[in-house]
Design a protein around this nucleic acid. Structure first.
Length: 306
DNA sequence: AAGACGAAAGTGGTTGA
DNA sequence: TCAACAACTTTCGTCTT
């Protein structure tokens, strides 16, 4: 897949009318529907400025906050001794004032830490989403989930990394652009187990009722990676709808089923891909593709003239 | 030589006692 | 907590094109 900025013309029909679909992070040809580029990393700011003062306000300049320098610029502490700089005892009113000041400094520090953790989580989310080329709405959804998790005090005892990854996973599913745990794991700094655990936990606690992922949600992405036409895509989707109706998909890994449907569709539409190729983009083995496609062909009565 | 096929043993996660 | 279980993977030999 070419880099986004290199593409000026649709390689299929030659049209120059390409539009960017931020929902899916893809550049699509408006005349034939071909996905010219995908997994585009959105490098722009997530805000818009209408005049200079807004830009001034919204712009955040420089590298992300450096977390290595603790309390930078705010490190002046109020001494616990009730003495002034000459060593004299403070008056009762000043002493009371100092007491209140200390109390507030303590409180501010605490909320500061929470802020810092949130900022860290959000920048982590941003990094992972960008690395995976996920569209912005997914990123935002994940951020909302994370904030909810913070408000419900679900982070205690769990790693920030794990929960952010889990939020991203959930957001992908909610947006119907599912990614596997493996794909998340590649960009996360925690392992799959941890992500899965955190995901189940927050899904339960936040009452996220996420329907099991449908194989259909995978068709677009896989088909694009295989360079398959729209015809083949919709053929695969038709096959899957049939299969779902007959209950052939329940209990099966959705990716394996999607891969099998695409394989069948590719053969039927005369742009055959090998089982190996299909298996690769779907992150399953050839054997699984084989087993699923055998089932589909048999139960749906599809004739393959190979 | 590459792809498709299928048997058999192994793996990790869920479920139910 | 543990064993049973289904889905999926790995591996490998055979057949087909």
């Amino acid at each position: 897949m070419p880099a986004a900025e290199d593409v000026k013309k649709c390689p299929v029909c030659g049209s120059t009318k390409l539009i960017f679909d931020p929902e899916r992070g893809e550049i699509v040809c408006t005349s034939c529907g071909y996905v010219v580029a995908q997994n585009i990393i959105d490098t722009g700011p997530e805000w818009r400025a209408f005049d200079a003062s807004q830009r001034e306000k919204r712009g955040r300049v420089g590298a992300p906050i450096t977390y290595t320098i603790h309390d930078k610029g705010l490190s002046t502490m109020i001494d616990w001794k009730n003495k002034d700089i000459h060593g004299h005892e403070l008056s009762a009113t000043t002493r009371a004032q100092m007491y209140r000041l200390r109390k507030w400094q303590r409180r501010i520090r605490v909320s500061d830490a929470a802020e810092r953790n949130l900022a860290f989580a959000l920048s982590e989310l941003d990094r992972m989403a960008s690395q995976m080329g996920l569209p912005r709405n997914v990123k935002e959804m994940a951020a909302v989930l994370y904030r909810k998790a913070v408000m419900e005090h679900l982070i205690r005892g769990r790693s920030i990394e794990g929960v952010t990854a889990a939020c991203l996973y959930a957001a992908c599913r909610m947006a119907k652009v599912p990614r596997t745990l493996d794909e998340i794991e590649e960009v996360a700094r925690v392992d799959k187990k941890e992500i899965g655990r955190s995901y189940r936990f927050i899904a339960r606690e936040l009452n996220l009722r996420l329907p099991p992922t449908s194989p259909i949600d995978y068709v677009n992405r896989f088909a694009d990676q295989l360079g398959l036409s729209e015809r083949t895509k919709s053929r695969a989707i038709k096959i899957l709808q049939e299969a779902i109706k007959k209950g052939l998909t329940s209990g099966r890994g959705p990716m394996g089923v999607a891969a099998a449907a695409l394989y069948i569709a590719s053969v039927l539409e005369g742009e055959k891909r090998t089982q190996r190729e299909v298996a690769e983009v779907a992150h399953v083995t050839e054997v699984t593709v084989r087993n699923r496609y055998k089932e589909l062909v048999e139960k749906l009565g599809i004739k393959l003239n190979i």
